[in-house]
Design a protein around this nucleic acid. Structure first.
Lengths: 336, 336
DNA sequence: AAACATCATGGGAAGGTTCCCACGAGGCAT
DNA sequence: ATGCCTCGTGGGAACCTTCCCATGATGTTT
């Protein structure tokens, strides 16, 4: 069943059928009706492969992320999908698992399937591979900053740290102890750098803050918090991610301390599990869904040949829950 | 850059280039080497669109699920992706949001992009729409049972309830109170039916169990548990899903009761958040990733024209954590 | 009334690959 | 030496659409 069959059925030429189906102009209402009737009756569906081959556009974009089963990335994917859906574009999703070899393979698969563009969270350091594939690209995630020449969308860690620290200031508990993750991850240094910068403005030099390292897991957070407690409980803790914050919370309660009355806690990420802890974790949420949405929009602007694609840093938001004391007369907690 | 260019560059015909690139036989080593060299040098990538158009196979399959941001479905997607990846097949993923209209639209998009097959969690009741799209289909999720004539993969709720109830029996705490979700969801009646069947075998008639309904959320679970507590705390509670179980846990602790010493709790689902509650939730885990994996394998067997595709029910597994008392000499807790 | 736009339509080429068939060369059995 | 089978190879058709250009009809301007 092809448009030629539809043409025969409706008594017009295949060109006219094509015009009707693609919504192009210059078709009489009569012809349009006849074609639509034939399509309806026969159940015909245009073959997008042939369409793409000829037109050079597939209406598909690739999404290459570390792991769709990770809630942050799943949410990014959802944002991209929502935006794509509104423009009738389909998403081809791949997982790199932080493995350069898999990334390379999937990038190649993306070029071969002729996606119009791709959104990727880069794993490897070499830029060459990205540029060789001549697809329009938008980078996402923290590692994107290693490629300043490519457009990207990420979360504004500095701003997130800033609103977090502001909130701690507002709570009036003094300087927080810091709980940070593996040294390998770029996320760690970004967080620390942001705390240094923002802290100085607040009159809290980084050197004077207690800082504990740990594995980027619940268990790692618990262990790090235990070390912190042993050396004397801090009044308030700022964790670089929610997983560790959740572990810290367990350690705090295991030590018989009340949160937030005795030890207050602030997380960073906004993962779903932080909603259901007891007490529920107050945290700085990353705009994961918005990252996906904006990445798509950037891409689409690029594909349709609009203005130069920039580097976007989206604001984090404070998710007020129960591990920081309430503020009766909240001082302004900025978003910028 | 096409295979014709490669043919010219390497001094063979386009047919030979095609044979080399598609891994078909009957090519001399010499020709193969020349072609590969030319490909390497030019950076040529075969156009999969043209390939698909001619061959009739796209190497893509569709995945239509309610919501990729939901951890269960994300995990299903991951399983399908892993299996697909091993066979160099790409996944086109769509979210239906439990909306029949969106489902219809995406199903149509899938047919138009000529995916080789599709895995779908059906929303609507009408079967017609599924059969009209003449793609090989595998259904997943609990609603699949409404379409007995189509192959499907799901979790074995009866078996899951069975191992859960067995575990409660083993704990020696007597008959559990039940916490179940919205009446609308098929999940609810399946759970209740399974408890009735298994309970009878254990000598626990459903009629004698306390049963509390609630919204399918943390808040709903908390409220339902509060009602239960008000009428006198049950010794052990079996919740039909983890979200409600987590809410119930909060209610238990808010009432000043210890879990599992005073009120023990068993969940159902295996969501990530259940790992980090305090105490960590003991629950019956659904084989989400395996569902995705098996769904793909079934599909692939179907596409390659192998034996008739069956209806698969995959076993749930008990995830032993902290909300049920430990068993020192565990009696056999079956998996079947 | 003539010249010119504008519009609806149709036919052919093109997009890049795979499939089918034909061909010649070489190996083996007759 | 002849016939036959296998193997490697090449050329043309086919897959289904969109794009480009030509055609004729209708409407508008001078």
């Amino acid at each position: 069943m092809t448009i030629i069959d539809i043409a025969r059925l409706s008594g017009v030429s295949k060109s006219t059928v094509s015009r009707v189906l693609s919504g192009a102009g210059n078709v009489s209402q009569e012809a349009r009706d006849k074609v639509m009737a034939a399509v309806q009756e026969s159940g015909f569906r245009r073959n997008d492969l042939a369409r793409s081959l000829r037109s050079g556009r597939t209406g598909m974009i690739g999404l290459l992320i570390p792991d769709i089963a990770n809630p942050f990335w799943a949410d990014v994917a959802r944002g991209a999908q929502d935006a794509a859906d509104a423009e009738d574009i389909s998403l081809l999703i791949f997982n790199s698992d932080w493995d350069p070899e898999r990334e390379r393979r999937h990038l190649q698969a993306l070029t071969q399937s002729r996606v119009d563009a791709a959104i990727v969270n880069p794993v490897r350091d070499g830029l060459d591979d990205f540029l060789r594939f001549q697809i329009p690209l938008v980078l996402i995630g923290s590692s994107a900053e290693r490629f300043p020449q490519l457009p990207s969308v990420g979360s504004d860690i500095s701003q997130g740290v800033s609103i977090g620290l502001d909130r701690i200031v507002a709570a009036g508990l003094g300087m927080p102890a810091l709980l940070v993750g593996d040294a390998e991850r770029t996320a760690r240094e970004r967080f620390v750098a942001a705390v240094r910068a923002v802290g100085e403005a607040e009159g809290w030099p980084l050197d004077e803050m207690r800082l504990e390292d740990g594995q980027y897991t619940v268990e790692g957070g618990r262990a790090a918090m235990e070390r912190l407690l042993k050396a004397g409980p801090p009044r308030v803790v700022f964790a670089a991610n929610d997983l560790m914050a959740l572990g810290a919370l367990q350690a705090i309660r295991a030590a018989g301390l009340r949160c937030p009355e005795e030890v207050a806690l602030l997380g960073f990420d906004g993962i779903p599990a932080a909603e259901v802890s007891t007490p529920a974790l107050t945290t700085v949420g990353k705009p994961s869904r918005e990252i996906g949405r904006q990445a798509f929009k950037l891409l689409n602007r690029k594909v349709t040949g609009q203005a130069e694609a920039p580097r976007l840093s989206l604001p984090c938001t404070l998710i007020e829950r129960e591990t920081l004391p309430r503020i009766d007369h909240p001082r302004a907690v900025g978003t910028g």
